[in-house]
Write a protein that binds this DNA or RNA. Structure first.
Lengths: 220, 220, 220, 220
DNA sequence: AATGAATGAGTGTTCATTCAT
DNA sequence: AATGAATGAACACTCATTCAT
């Protein structure tokens, strides 16, 4: 463990120590993959542990239950990032039109194009069977997400850049296109007819442009 | 069970006879309800059988496995209503703007507000596990649906009422809002923040109006 | 399967039918043996099922949980018999002295000398860890047992055959000797010093005689 | 850890030092508490270690297994207080009646009301699983206890104060009430119907008085 | 054709025990 | 000596599927 340690044994020695702190992250990564691929119920904790290279018992050392593991996955990949996004919104200086475009684009960059996008579809199927998880997801993801969009639209109305809107329904002008793309991940087969001709980036731009035609006081 | 049967028991016997042939249909109906409500994995075959009024053994008499039951449910319920809709479209006489509005509205009336909407969400979750069914669904539902929208948009462009559109992505300007609503049914909790303040009809109208602002050459 | 069926295959055929009704009883017998031998927590449901000659799944067909199985065992072997004993007491015509003797004796004949006696010791160890079972046992066994003894003593006082007694403590003049013997079953090693010199029947008679010396108005 | 240690840290160091040697004892004390409270199986070694203020690994440093810990607990706590009691008996000057009363009372004061009473119940439950310990308990506790009672009764017969007794069974006239109370501790719920109305002291007096009515040549 | 009793593989979770540090 | 991260065997309970009747 000194300067002379050969690189070959270093990892072996360090693994223990390094692992200890890396474990939760490795488990969360493995869990995200499997949850997104198979759904919550169909994902076996053994498999998550195996993919993270540990035993089943170790998983329960870090997460007291499968549900808690799932919550941690959601928190790490989505829920925990709203604080940052909210701040970003508050300090945003551009027009509402630019803000909405930015919103679409950065949702895609940070969520839609990542594995985390698959979590939305997951919730769709499992919400009925796991009410506690559904409630958690509503509180930690759905609510902040809705509020974020509402604030964007409200800001636009306040600044006179957007038409007067019924926010209870207008939020979905923004959310529906994003969620649709989210639900289509990672296997778009039942949503997108010809994935080969489909570019998410083009989709995102088109949706943003189009919704703005309707939202803005003066169509750009 | 012969001519001497008293009238009192006759119906009993007759029902039996009728039942025997109606069994598969009753099972499929029960299965549709439960699959849509709980998802594939969480639906127990006992419950399907019970709801159809037969024993679990009988179900396996008609469907060799739960998977086959699922396939049969999907096959039965996603039949071709598209032929009729295609005809309707061809003979439509109004403006594109009216046509799109009509399209949103009648989708909600005929699909979105019915049990069939639940099947979309089902397919979304199970497509990975039933590639064969997914392919079937793509062929019988996704493809005709996309084509229908494409024709509507193409018609609009041909008539000079809609702007020039990249159809491969523009179809989703119409589809995304509809599918989002479909996936949110029947348990909107993880999509809609406050279902109590949400009216599907208002949503449909707002989405149609808004998308048209972007699509039309001259905003109405 | 007709009149010519050899007796050898008859049981094979009949087993299905006969079993169906005999199963719960067979399971309860197996469960009683194992619960008494190993305790509640240490008894494996697989083992109970195996001893009854069925699979684990079959056990859960008849008893929804291990706790319910245990309750059924207690009900069959003790709790369900108080009704009969209460009746017996009401119609008893002899003196209180005879009644107490009869009580000791028939407790031994019907409970103390059977495997059911082991259930008391079981509860002693498991009560803390399974509060629901403990509560059930209190309600179904402890309470009726105490009441039965109280009524016997009260009857004796009413008839002027027994001295005035503080029933809250006097019940244990009768219960303690019986329970001690119960706790000593089926392995008396830590209660009885020399089991070889110990006769439960003699013990029962001696305890009954002795307690009566104190209870009766005129020592016999 | 030497003379230079500042007074402030001295106690810290000293405690460590003292602790190191006291560890096994602290572990045994913690284990006694927990075993008595929860039983052997339900007691978790983590909890024992935590209560003793050490890690789980440390426990296994001193005791190779949970079973060995249990054995050590029993061995430590069931020491010979009988020598003292035997002496007390030999020099006792009062009547047999007084002696028996004294015996009941001091058993309660010195054993029944202490944690040691819980050990009896522990042994009762675990005797099957730890025959070696059971044998030890028989030799060190059961046998001396029985002998002590036998001598008391023999003394009474010799002095003409007690009736002629079959000692093999008569010992239990004294032992059964005491053991019943012992087993009922510390959670009397499955033995005592209404603990709120129950006073161990009253119980002890009543049992002593009553048994003497039967034992004595002339009822006092 | 219809039943429903029986099965047994599979799942999340616990906990005594090990061992590298 | 002491730690605590890691293990893996064990266990109650579920449910799709089978099959004798």
């Amino acid at each position: 463990m000194n300067v002379l340690s050969s690189p070959a044994v270093q990892p072996e020695c360090a693994r223990r120590g390094r692992r200890k702190e890396a474990r939760p992250g490795e488990l969360l990564d493995a869990a995200l993959d499997l949850f997104v691929e198979k759904g919550f119920a169909a994902t076996r904790v053994d498999e998550v542990a195996a993919r993270a290279g540990v035993s089943k018992g170790t998983l329960f050392l870090y997460f007291p239950s499968k549900e808690d593991l799932f919550k941690a996955v959601v928190r790490k990949n989505i829920a925990g990032r709203f604080a940052e996004w909210d701040l970003e919104l508050e300090s945003y200086a551009g027009t509402s039109s630019e803000l909405v475009q930015y919103c679409f684009q950065s949702w895609w960059d940070r969520v839609g194009s990542t594995k985390a996008a698959g979590l939305s579809r997951l919730m769709l199927s499992e919400a009925n069977n796991f009410p506690e998880i559904a409630e958690f997801y509503r509180r930690e993801v759905v609510a902040p997400g809705h509020q974020l969009i509402r604030r964007i639209l409200q800001r636009g109305m306040d600044r006179g850049e957007l038409r007067p809107l019924d926010l209870d329904h207008a939020v979905y002008l923004v959310l529906a296109p994003l969620m649709f793309l989210s639900f289509a991940q990672p296997s778009p087969s039942v949503c997108i007819l010809e994935p080969a001709h489909f570019s998410p980036e083009t989709y995102i731009r088109l949706q943003a442009d189009n919704v703005l035609q309707g939202l803005c006081v003066r169509p750009t």
